[in-house]
């Protein structure tokens, strides 16, 4: 087994184990904190794939900002912390079965497909290429996303300042 494969399996184990904690923990703060190793595991996979820029953004945005905001909101919410919450309802068994079947289908599908390996070389330095594609071929999508963000920003301000 190569070092890359070992690294992948370690990262996958970290991601999956923390993912299980996220959905199973009775304590909502534990769930939120367990998101961080899950995000960092995905970051490691990005690095293995040579997508360093995406990996950096993943840590900065997801592990650094989104998790902090989730924790922040939980801690500001009355009754959000210190309670033992059940994360499942009476449909737990059916849900688990459906999830298991989907996972099995995905595994079979991915392993049975003949993937085209080694198509072209990886770009050496990605941030420049990402910027070029944002302001070149994907300009419309990029601007559309920024409008969506602007609208949600304004919406958040309006909701927050309603009382005035």
């Amino acid at each position: 087994m190569t070092g890359e494969a070992i690294a992948f399996y370690v990262l996958a184990a970290i991601t999956l184990a923390s993912g299980v904690v996220v959905v199973r923990s009775p304590n909502i703060v534990h769930s939120a904190v367990a998101l961080i190793p899950a995000f960092l595991g995905v970051t490691g996979v990005y690095i293995l794939l040579g997508a360093e820029f995406v990996a950096g953004i993943q840590v900065l945005i997801y592990a650094g900002a989104i998790t902090v905001l989730i924790l922040f909101v939980i801690m500001l919410t009355e009754g959000g912390t210190g309670l033992r919450l059940r994360q499942v309802n009476e449909q737990e068994t059916i849900g688990a079965m459906v999830a298991g079947v989907i996972a099995a289908l995905l595994v079979v599908g991915i392993t049975r497909t003949g993937w085209h390996a080694g198509m072209g070389a990886l770009p050496a330095y990605t941030p420049g290429a990402i910027g070029q594609s944002f302001l070149g071929p994907n300009l419309l999508v990029f601007e559309g996303t920024s409008i969506v963000l602007l609208v949600s920003l304004i919406g958040a301000i309006i909701i927050a300042r309603k009382e005035e």
Binding site: G56, V59, L60, A63, V68, P127
Partner: peptide, 16 residues
């Protein structure tokens, strides 16, 4: 080659 971004990302983890 993402040095500065890496720095911003890791220093953001302190708050966690």
């Amino acid at each position: 080659n993402i040095g500065v971004l890496f720095f911003a990302a890791t220093s953001a983890l302190v708050v966690v």
